[in-house]
């Protein structure tokens, strides 16, 4: 499915789409955000991750001006649109909010009227894009949760905005729907859109994000390009026909070995940037051990996430 046309979106070049400086927010005695500072580069897919109550939605709510921060500041598009910046951003925050008594199509007309993004033809385009064209005349109240979510995504895509803010965009969707949203995000990224996405589906985020920030109890534990965040150390996986010979040799090199339970491969850990695969391969060859598998493996996002967020 082609999610995205070749038409260019309305967005002028800026190196950083969003700059967040020391945002703090409390609800009574509970500190929801504790000095969050981030920078979202143009063209990135920026994943904001965190367990429930980590402050993801609060942060997005502040960035979209529906919540007020007690301290700190943020700048969209280098502040060039002032308070009108939200018209340049397609946004889905938490649950889809529409007028229950109106049809999907009529609801999108209201979005167009307020955001000044898109027109009648665009409404038709996004309804087809999210698979709701046949149900466009039906009242929103009759939609399933997945359909409501699709309509909200459609609304965010109206007018082809350069920036999208998506909070749990796959909520309520079936596996096919989730895969379609993943494809959509990839297409948008390829077309140069910047996407800020909060999700608890780590696998999905890992597949689509270029950058990630992990939040816990209102603090940023880590942030940056996905490769940097995930590869906090070098993990090398290797195997040979003579697996025991390989194991014995590596032990003589004073290396700590682990074994992958599923594959049986041997795993070695090195400080970040210090694994030298070519040298390792050559040394093994010199010992008469022919490697059948050798790879520098990055951690699964899930693994890294739990490492960071578990106390």
């Amino acid at each position: 499915m082609e999610w995205f046309g070749a038409n260019s979106f309305n967005f002028e070049f800026v190196s950083s789409v969003l700059q967040i400086n020391n945002i703090q927010k409390s609800y009574g005695s509970v500190r929801a955000l504790n000095g969050v500072s981030l920078q979202v580069p143009e063209g990135s897919v920026y994943g904001i991750l965190g367990p429930n109550g980590s402050g993801k939605t609060t942060l997005l709510g502040i960035l979209m001006s529906v919540l007020r921060a007690q301290h700190g500041s943020f700048d969209w598009f280098d502040g060039r649109y002032g308070d009108g910046y939200r018209k340049k951003i397609g946004c889905l925050l938490e649950t889809p909010n529409f007028y229950q008594y109106l049809s999907g199509e009529e609801n999108l007309r209201i979005t167009v009227s307020i955001s000044e993004r898109g027109d009648e033809a665009d409404i038709e385009r996004v309804l087809k894009l999210v698979g709701l064209y046949e149900r466009r005349k039906h009242r929103f109240a009759t939609y399933s949760l997945g359909m409501k979510q699709r309509l909200a995504i459609g609304a965010a895509l109206l007018g082809n905005p350069g920036v999208l803010v998506l909070d749990e965009p796959t909520n309520g969707l079936d596996p096919v729907g989730i895969a379609e949203i993943r494809d959509l995000i990839r297409s948008l990224r390829q077309a140069g859109h910047t996407i800020v996405i909060a999700s608890h589906l780590l696998d999905e985020v890992e597949k689509v994000c270029t950058h990630v920030a992990i939040l816990k109890k209102g603090n940023v534990l880590t942030d940056g390009p996905v490769t940097d965040v995930l590869m906090d150390e070098d993990v090398v996986e290797l195997d040979a026909t003579d697996r025991e010979g390989l194991r014995s040799f590596l032990l003589t090199q004073s290396l700590t070995l682990e074994t992958d339970k599923e594959t049986g491969w041997i795993r070695l850990r090195f400080p970040k940037g210090q694994a030298k695969l070519e040298e390792l391969n050559r040394t093994c060859m010199q010992q008469g051990i022919a490697l059948t598998h050798l790879s520098l493996r990055r951690k699964k996002l899930e693994t890294r996430f739990f490492e960071l967020t578990n106390d």
Binding site: V66, G84, K87, L93, T95, Y99, I114
Partner: peptide, 17 residues
């Protein structure tokens, strides 16, 4: 209605001040 459907919030998200 705007509170019940949370559309007052959505109107702001969509771009109204």
């Amino acid at each position: 209605n705007e509170y019940q459907y949370r559309t007052q919030r959505q109107n702001i998200l969509d771009g109204w001040k």
